[in-house]
Amino acid sequence: MNIDLTDTTSSKIFGALLDARRRSGSPAMGAVLTLVIVTDEQGHYDALKAATSASREHPSRILVVVARPGRGASRLDAEVRTSGETGPGEVVLLRLHGELSDHPDSVVLPLLLPDAPVVVWWPGTAPEDPAHHPLGMMAQRRITDSASCQSPISELAKRRSGYSGGDTDLSWTRLTPWRTLLAGALDHPAAPITGAKVAAEAESPSAELLALWLGSRLGVEVERATTDGPGITGVHLWSDGGGVDIERGDGRVAQIKVPGSPERSVALPRRPLSELLAEELRRLDADDVYGEVLGLVSPADGSVGAGA
């Protein structure tokens, strides 16, 4: 069911949500969190699609905040969509016109689920210091996406300087399958790693983070090589015994070679936004490992620090 409310207030929106829930005959709420998406007119469709898909795994109330600053009068328009077509949970699309666009917290606060965690997601441009953004302050977890910004690498440096526990970035989430595969390759005792190389397309914040992670964990220098992509195309770990070699040229299937085993192929597809978001919502506490790796990003231009 869709309800359009123009020139409205949060309490009217709340009323509409309650009303819709009563009408559908299921007053109980199964939602486990409130997801606030801060975006613009161009970005809200894709973001909402990913969020609705993720809400199948994490039933949530989704609040989409679209700021429309301008010289016009302050006004709040809302579109309430309740369970049914959109999947479990509720979706409220909020359009903040004029001066109101500077005060999104005043609109969002009354609409948060009681006592449930809050996650804020900036699918595009993110504030310099998410934890101190008016919306970020309400949240346990703040999700950004450096890769979707104008210059991803310098964006990473901003993430570092504005980092607080609970921040996370989708360029880190994208690495999980790579990191899983690499950790699996080193599960069985082998000769110590003496060097490493990460090959990826230019301007890949994920590759930067992967190189930093490997460098700090293995205590070696990590080379960076630029390829045509897509994404990360290969990781090589050298050791006296031969080392680990993973190549992924097509963004789907990787070839992996470890000492003592023949070359094998393993599925390593690039994941859609919905899966990344679902992974993010699985844990709501601070990701310390991400924090540590991010701390190694060099503040000036975001490139890999020497010997890191």
Binding site: R179, L214, R217, L218, E279, D287
Partner: peptide, 10 residues
């Protein structure tokens, strides 16, 4: 060295 109990994504 790549495993860490705090790294619960893996």
């Amino acid at each position: 060295p790549l495993r860490d109990v705090r790294d619960r994504r893996l």
